[in-house]
Design a protein around this nucleic acid. Sequence first.
RNA 1: GGGAGCAUAGCUCAGCCGGUUAGAGCACCUGCUUUACACGCAGGGGGUCACAGGUUCGAGUCCUGUUGUUCCCACCA
Length: 871
Amino acid sequence: MRELEKVYDPTRVESKIYKMWMDGGYFHAVIDPEKKPFSIVIPPPNVTGQLHLGHAFDNTVQDILTRTKRMQGYSAVWIPGTDHAGIATQIKVEEELRKEGLTRYDLGREKFLERVWEWKEKYGGRIIEQLKLLGSSCDWDRERFTMDEGCSKAVREVFVALYEKGLIYKGNRIINWCPTCTTALSDTEVEHEDEAGHFWHIKYQIKDSDEYLVVATTRPETMLGDTGVAVHPDDERYAHLVGKTVILPLMNREMPIIADEYVDREFGTGCVKMTPCHDPNDFEVGQRHNLEQILVLDNDAKIINGGKYNGLDRYDARKTIVADLDALGLLVQVEEHSHSVGKCYRCGTTVEPITSPQWFVKMEPLAKNAIEVVRDGRMKFVPDRFTKTYLNWMENVRDWCISRQLWWGHQIPAWYCADCGEITVSREDASECAHCHSKNITREEDVLDTWFSSALWPFSVFGWPDKTPELDYWYPTTVVTPGYEIIFFWVARMIFSGLEHMGDVPFRTAYIHGIVRDDKGRKMSKSLGNGIDPQEIIDRYGADALRMNMITGNSPGNDMRFYPERCEAMRNFANKIWNASRFVMMNLTIEDNALPETLELEDKWILSKLNTTVREVTENIERYELGIAATKLYDFIWDSFCDWYIELTKPRLNGEDKLANISAQRVLLYVLTEILKLLHPYMPFITENIYQALPHTGTVIMVEKYPEFTASLDFPAEEADFEAIMDAIKSVRVRRAEMNVPSNKRPHLTIVSDRPDVFETGRVYLAKLAYAGEVTVTRNAPANLDGQVAVITDQARVFMPLSELVDLAAERARIEKELEKATSDLQKLEAKLSNEAFTAKAPENVVQAERERADKARALIENLTESLNGL
RNA sequence: GGGAGCAUAGCUCAGCCGGUUAGAGCACCUGCUUUACACGCAGGGGGUCACAGGUUCGAGUCCUGUUGUUCCCACCA
């Protein structure tokens, strides 16, 4: 293991490491009353899906949380699984059929479903395999599918329970219809987009009169289904017409003129054509006024009940109707008009509002509890702003249309009786009508909204409706991590479902994240072709680099842009750790990582810094500030450990003193091991890989104990002292760089400080890291400073005999500039300190800190003046 | 129409409870075969924290408004 490659190659080890974890069964969680439970259910990816960067992000978050908690001694379970994704999957299989010149109807329901299951078997595992490439530590023994037996049972139970409670009903109501997917959609499945359209003003003649009303519409084809015209009850312009009859052009249908508060007098002409079957508002107005309902669009959005327009596609009908109206002189005006159009979230087709007999969940009673648990804090959103988004939606939620005219999904357990006309809803497949016992029953063909089963996911995966130990132990789950785009689809529905069926929230925290965009800030999509395959990134940079990249540099809930180049930085980081470990191993003669009995100053410094890092990182993760924690680890590892501590140990490792050598090894190994543990949840592969090569007492790092703050390793005073030495080193480096001193020039340094003991300890490091020859430490400045260049830090003045390299004039200018800065700083500080309001009101420690700054500034001015005089 | 986010270095973004001299990565400049790493080391340049008010001893951070931008929700035909 001492012959490690200079460059870390993740591709060679990641799959081996993953296999080792799998073989060891480390992902499997068991119920352990001695341990605290921690649980996450995966937002189940679509079974036909491919891993994209959004998944990579989402699952990295879950893995970090799960791995951290597992190491912290929780019984941490992360339940994986996939979603049957009703419409999406059915579309895919239908597309495949189309290539064979077939439709699903050619196959029939049963054969078609066989095809979908085949498809599922073929592609359903793909995304799971991709999740493994990421390093996801899911409990694969507990993998679920929304249409597996257990989940189906849960769906059935919920449907029947809600029906029995009167919370599921069937009704002929306005729903969103997608003519391409030929199914109803819920409100959440419709995406609204503003589109440039027209506003057609049409004359409707009053019966037995020369008078006309003018109505305006954006969808003229719907006029075929008009069954009334509405005006506002207080609108004096039309008061005389209310109750009269108007004649629908083209159809010559007589329709009433009604008065309803719904009409906005200011908008358009103040007259609204009423199409109860194709507009949600008109539907409601129509119900209030008993308007006739005439459906004029069929399932393919072709005209029906429209006389000569029958059979025309909706847009062809629109053109024809407009032309006909124009020919009749009934088209009074055509306005350019931008209006919002609803699109199907699966296929993008413009949906049509259509009245249709569908199944609904009655939301009001369910929403009430779902609002309460968030209001009273039983469940919280991170970041908090999504609370408002959620509440706003839940407070205004309308009944949920759950039936879909698809074949792939959970078929609704309802049977219609041909004899008595009643509906039988049953947990077991019905063989007779529950009302009249007729055998003449047929099953509802529709299936349920795919989100109906996802809503039950946090408890169906643990075996509900059976009472299981898993439910007892792991429900409610600790946290879910969805993107904000599925708050309504999924999060909201899980909340009311959990409350209704489990009597408790499905999760304590919803940690909501943003979406991953491309480098130009655009959403990644197939049509733009700007998607990035995570697998490609993994192949190129490693899963660890991808994970780390996803998690750093963004804050909770915000979108992030994905730059492949940023992965390079994280790959470099992995390489840095690799090489630091190589260094430690190359120097290793010990077999265990116990700390030495005596610690040097620099040891205490790194251990104390490590300790602080442990505390802070743990706190950050606890607060879901994963990015901040990652940055702290990155900085500690690269800056403190690699750039400083490793360099600091070299004198001991290369020196003659055996004991010193061993003690350096011990601290190095100890810190490295702790670093690997801390970083493991973020970069699981490389940390495990290195851990396996180091002397260790555990089995695998993924089940090692997560580091904890250790009071006995807290050395704040020593930490500060050592930083004074670092300060001196840095200052000397800066001066040398400014003066272009070649690195082989090693001048004698004279350090003047009130803390000679500290700098005495630091001599060897100044020599090495500040490229000094000899180092002398004194309390008082030497009498003769001729030819000395000084650098000044808070705790010391360092003199270097380098005046031959100095341009005296430039040096004078430099010092004067520094002096000027110091003087102005001091003035500001003195002004602040002489401000009584400040000294009286600011906290003592802040005032004290300002006093110290002022003292330092004074000392600096004194020293600079002295240097200037010395020139 | 309602609501939310964002606006900080050339680029992409951090910056939690208001408290020293505002940070990182990338890019840029200078130097370096320092025996872990050039996927590296040392150093450097670069910011009126969108704008205008306000609160405060003190504001990138809190409040109000303005502008720009992105998004979500909504039944004005």
